[in-house]
Protein backbone atom coordinates (compact mmCIF):
# COMPACT_ATOMS: atom_id res chain seq x y z
CA UNK A 1 0.00 0.00 0.00
CA UNK A 2 2.80 2.38 0.86
CA UNK A 3 4.50 1.55 -2.43
CA UNK A 4 1.23 2.25 -4.25
CA UNK A 5 0.76 5.69 -2.63
CA UNK A 6 4.42 6.54 -3.16
CA UNK A 7 4.32 5.79 -6.87
CA UNK A 8 0.73 6.57 -7.90
CA UNK A 9 1.74 10.06 -9.06
CA UNK A 10 4.38 8.71 -11.39
CA UNK A 11 2.05 6.08 -12.84
CA UNK A 12 -0.62 8.68 -13.63
CA UNK A 13 2.11 10.84 -15.17
CA UNK A 14 3.03 7.91 -17.41
CA UNK A 15 -0.63 7.29 -18.32
CA UNK A 16 -1.05 10.97 -19.30
CA UNK A 17 2.20 10.89 -21.24
CA UNK A 18 1.16 7.81 -23.19
CA UNK A 19 -2.36 9.15 -23.86
CA UNK A 20 -0.77 12.31 -25.25
CA UNK A 21 1.71 10.34 -27.36
CA UNK A 22 -1.01 8.05 -28.69
CA UNK A 23 -3.22 11.01 -29.62
CA UNK A 24 -0.32 12.64 -31.45
CA UNK A 25 0.72 9.61 -33.48
CA UNK A 26 -2.63 7.97 -34.21
CA UNK A 27 -5.05 10.84 -34.98
CA UNK A 28 -5.10 12.69 -38.28
CA UNK A 29 -6.79 15.88 -37.12
CA UNK A 30 -4.19 18.62 -36.56
CA UNK A 31 -6.06 20.38 -33.74
CA UNK A 32 -6.40 17.07 -31.92
CA UNK A 33 -2.69 16.42 -32.37
CA UNK A 34 -1.93 19.77 -30.73
CA UNK A 35 -4.20 18.94 -27.79
CA UNK A 36 -2.37 15.60 -27.49
CA UNK A 37 0.92 17.48 -27.36
CA UNK A 38 -0.52 19.68 -24.63
CA UNK A 39 -1.52 16.65 -22.55
CA UNK A 40 2.01 15.30 -22.96
CA UNK A 41 3.36 18.67 -21.82
CA UNK A 42 1.14 18.76 -18.71
CA UNK A 43 2.33 15.26 -17.80
CA UNK A 44 5.93 16.52 -17.82
CA UNK A 45 4.86 19.39 -15.55
CA UNK A 46 3.40 16.85 -13.12
CA UNK A 47 6.58 14.78 -13.17
CA UNK A 48 8.65 17.81 -12.17
CA UNK A 49 6.27 19.06 -9.47
CA UNK A 50 5.91 15.53 -8.03
CA UNK A 51 9.68 15.25 -7.77
CA UNK A 52 9.79 18.57 -5.91
CA UNK A 53 7.12 17.76 -3.33
CA UNK A 54 8.22 17.00 0.25
CA UNK A 55 5.92 15.19 2.64
CA UNK A 56 4.46 17.64 5.18
CA UNK A 57 6.17 20.54 3.40
CA UNK A 58 4.73 23.99 2.92
CA UNK A 59 4.74 26.19 -0.16
CA UNK A 60 8.24 27.68 -0.61
CA UNK A 61 7.45 31.07 0.91
CA UNK A 62 9.72 31.65 3.89
CA UNK A 63 7.68 32.18 7.06
CA UNK A 64 8.18 32.05 10.80
CA UNK A 65 7.73 28.66 12.39
CA UNK A 66 7.79 26.62 9.19
CA UNK A 67 10.58 24.05 8.99
CA UNK A 68 9.91 22.02 5.84
CA UNK A 69 9.37 23.55 2.39
CA UNK A 70 8.85 21.91 -0.96
CA UNK A 71 11.58 22.31 -3.59
CA UNK A 72 11.34 25.75 -5.29
CA UNK A 73 13.46 24.92 -8.34
CA UNK A 74 10.92 22.73 -10.23
CA UNK A 75 8.28 25.38 -9.54
CA UNK A 76 10.40 28.02 -11.25
CA UNK A 77 11.12 25.81 -14.26
CA UNK A 78 7.48 24.77 -14.72
CA UNK A 79 6.07 28.23 -14.08
CA UNK A 80 7.97 29.62 -17.04
CA UNK A 81 7.39 26.46 -19.10
CA UNK A 82 3.59 26.87 -18.80
CA UNK A 83 3.63 30.40 -20.21
CA UNK A 84 6.15 29.49 -22.91
CA UNK A 85 3.96 26.43 -23.65
CA UNK A 86 0.89 28.53 -24.38
CA UNK A 87 2.92 30.82 -26.64
CA UNK A 88 4.25 27.88 -28.66
CA UNK A 89 0.78 26.27 -28.74
CA UNK A 90 -0.55 29.50 -30.21
CA UNK A 91 2.18 29.35 -32.86
CA UNK A 92 1.15 25.79 -33.75
CA UNK A 93 -2.51 26.83 -33.93
CA UNK A 94 -1.55 29.71 -36.21
CA UNK A 95 0.16 27.23 -38.53
CA UNK A 96 -3.03 25.11 -38.49
CA UNK A 97 -5.08 28.17 -39.45
CA UNK A 98 -2.76 28.83 -42.40
CA UNK A 99 -2.95 25.18 -43.47
CA UNK A 100 -6.75 25.36 -43.38
CA UNK A 101 -6.70 28.52 -45.50
CA UNK A 102 -4.38 26.97 -48.08
CA UNK A 103 -5.70 23.40 -48.28
CA UNK A 104 -9.26 23.83 -47.03
CA UNK A 105 -8.91 20.99 -44.52
CA UNK A 106 -7.05 20.07 -41.34
CA UNK A 107 -7.15 16.29 -41.77
CA UNK A 108 -3.74 14.84 -42.45
CA UNK A 109 -4.97 12.22 -44.97
CA UNK A 110 -6.82 14.80 -47.07
CA UNK A 111 -3.79 17.13 -47.07
CA UNK A 112 -1.65 14.20 -48.20
CA UNK A 113 -4.08 13.37 -51.05
CA UNK A 114 -4.22 17.02 -52.15
CA UNK A 115 -0.43 17.17 -52.24
CA UNK A 116 -0.24 14.11 -54.46
CA UNK A 117 -3.11 15.01 -56.77
CA UNK A 118 -1.40 18.24 -57.87
Amino acid sequence: MEFFIGHYNYWVVIILMMVGLYTVISRGNLVKKIIGLNIFQVSVFFLYISLGTVEGGAAPIIAEGVKVYSNPLPHVLILTAIVVGVATTALALALVVRIKETYGTIEEDEIHNLDHSL
Partner: peptide
Protein backbone atom coordinates in the same frame (compact mmCIF):
# COMPACT_ATOMS: atom_id res chain seq x y z
CA UNK B 1 7.88 39.10 -3.64
CA UNK B 2 5.90 38.20 -0.54
CA UNK B 3 3.14 35.85 -1.68
CA UNK B 4 2.48 33.63 -4.66
CA UNK B 5 2.63 35.62 -7.84
CA UNK B 6 4.95 37.47 -10.15
CA UNK B 7 5.25 38.84 -13.62
CA UNK B 8 4.16 35.75 -15.55
Amino acid sequence: DFGPGGGF
